[in-house]
Amino acid sequence: MTETTQTAEATRPNRFSLRSILNNAGIGLALLAIILFFSIFTEHFLTANNITNILTQITINLILAVGMTFVILIGGIDLSVGSVMAFAAVVAGKAITMPGMGDAELIILAIVAGMLAGVVCGLFNGVVSAYWALPSFIITLGMLNIARGAALHISDAQTIYSFPFAFEEFGSAMVYGIPIVFLVALALVVVAWFILNFTVFGRLIYGIGNNEEAVRLAGHPVFWYKVGAFTICGLCAGIAAIVYMARLNIASPIAGIAFELNAIAAVIIGGTSLSGGRGSVIGTLLGAFIIGVLANGLILIGLNDFMRQMITGVVIIIAVILDYYRAKYASK
């Protein structure tokens, strides 16, 4: 990195620059190529039903990845989101199956409880890793176990089921063939894009990833910005939990195992740098699409499970190599 002398203000992402457009265009082109490939070689890929399926299938990963983008942009990582999602689901599941309340109250209570559970975990991750300047890798690895253990403990390892009808409906409802849960995820992308590009908080998220010391010297409360990034990530895990419950009509304490890996993969494939400071939530959206389209298309094409896993791995590595060249040209 050669930007050590930059101030926080100067690290503001130049959102309409040719380079940033080209960055996302590259990922977009890769996605288009994959889509084209499956359209030609499979019969059912470009059907309305299959597109609906893909949108449903990428929703949870996309929501987790939006939160993850904030954490990775400040140069952190959150390994706990899969477990936090399960914890939030179990908390919300307990809330929504409480006796003696109307359906509407139960649904609101569950949504609030699930999001709150996510926020608490994210807040913990942020406060502990920022206050003691500890690697978020380790702190969130701890949270991965805390949240999973808590989810299993609260639920006694049992799957929670039987939710109000209206809540179950929400999970499979559509607008013009687009799943409502996907629109929720898309709304989150738009909100995140706005925050990252048009607010002081967002600009300083990039700033911290580029040069934390400069942001600190400029008098900004770096601690709270970092806590903010992790809290947003936790909140997203909570929202993902609600979507999971609405879609599958259960709350399972073993939900979301290894989901953090797919979320991180979506962010990285989307061109956000693992060392922070560079990337965009639009890239994350495209990254989530690439993972989802691959998972879908490779099944349609009839490739076996093990080959499918290998190809997903290869795509992640190619994305990181491409990122290396992007960074190289960007710093010229």
């Binding site: 499979t42 059912h44 059907t47 039903n49 299959n50 399926n53 449903t56 299938q57 949870i60 999971y244 879609r247 599958l248 259960i250 399972s252 073993i254 939900a255 979301g256 195992i257 998972a295 879908n296 099944i299 349609l300 009839g302 499970d305």
Partner: peptide, 19 residues
């Protein structure tokens, strides 16, 4: 395989149904 898991089975089977 869906690794014993609900969400994965939902995704994998949706795609199998499409195919």
């Amino acid at each position: 395989t869906a690794h014993w898991e609900t969400e994965e089975a939902n995704t994998v089977f949706s795609n199998m149904l499409t195919a």
